[in-house]
Design a protein around this nucleic acid. Sequence first.
DNA 1: GCAAGATCATTTGTGTACAAACAATCTCGT
DNA 2: ACGAGATTGTTTGTACACAAATGATCTTGC
Lengths: 151, 151
Amino acid sequence: MKPKPATPRANVTPASGYRLEQQVGYVLRQASQRHAGIFAARIPEALTATQFSTLVRLQEVGPCSQNKLGRLTSMDAATIKGVTDRLIQRGLVEAWLDPKDGRRRLLALTPAGLDLVARAIPAAMEITAATLEPLTPDEREEFLKLLKKLR
Amino acid sequence: MKPKPATPRANVTPASGYRLEQQVGYVLRQASQRHAGIFAARIPEALTATQFSTLVRLQEVGPCSQNKLGRLTSMDAATIKGVTDRLIQRGLVEAWLDPKDGRRRLLALTPAGLDLVARAIPAAMEITAATLEPLTPDEREEFLKLLKKLR
DNA sequence: GCAAGATCATTTGTGTACAAACAATCTCGT
DNA sequence: ACGAGATTGTTTGTACACAAATGATCTTGC
């Protein structure tokens, strides 16, 4: 008679062959966490990545309604409101009502906001470089190409 | 005399050459959002991705302290507490004090939790496939390989 | 010109994610 | 045996992210 395979009750190897480490979503979360850490450590003035994206987009497109800015930065209406409220409170963005359309709230960078974007961009470029540092230059290009397909 | 280049004040092309779409962090956020949407649409019982990861890990390793489980799923102490509290409240996880170490709170799957993991794994596999669907099979492998380097 | 439907912004509620501070408990060196 | 330091877990506060409900305003078709 064969001996019982001494497997007590823990450490059950998933019979399914499902491995967390092989799932895009799981690894995507880990990579995002690493990036967020690098970002927080290197950006000036304690900006978050979403706040910085918002400022950059506002600089690119000029005055813009709040919801449209949200679409241009991949944030829903509730999220972009919170983000812009905080930027307004810090004096980096200003808001006013659109005289042509009473629903719209127009947003623009203040001079302080424009100045901060200009100062932060070099750091932001370093952040991207630091995040991709584990890859070779060829891999970086390939990775970004593939990642963009998953948007 | 040349005509003035009719550029009023908006739409300033960034002199810096900084493009949001080219930054890993920005595209990483978009890809994570897409994945979260796919996950929410296909997983049973309204589990979140982090909740599901927690259940899967718990099934793999068996009874485990709360902070250790957090490390095994890339969540800090505050985050894993919130996640496990909600899983306990739903009856998917049970908790008790470690008699050997008064600081530790041990966690394990309940039968209902084990059952849910088993039922959710096929959906989770489809979620991974759906997320990677824009890539060819070769690209999927390559992407995951590169993504893992960025953890 | 007007009603139906769309769009814009806000609010509320839930769920990560992390920093910082804290109390309780354990470990290790002496 | 004991005290310094580490670890565990909790709490508070801030910041995304999204669903769903709401009111105000605009656009369209007729």
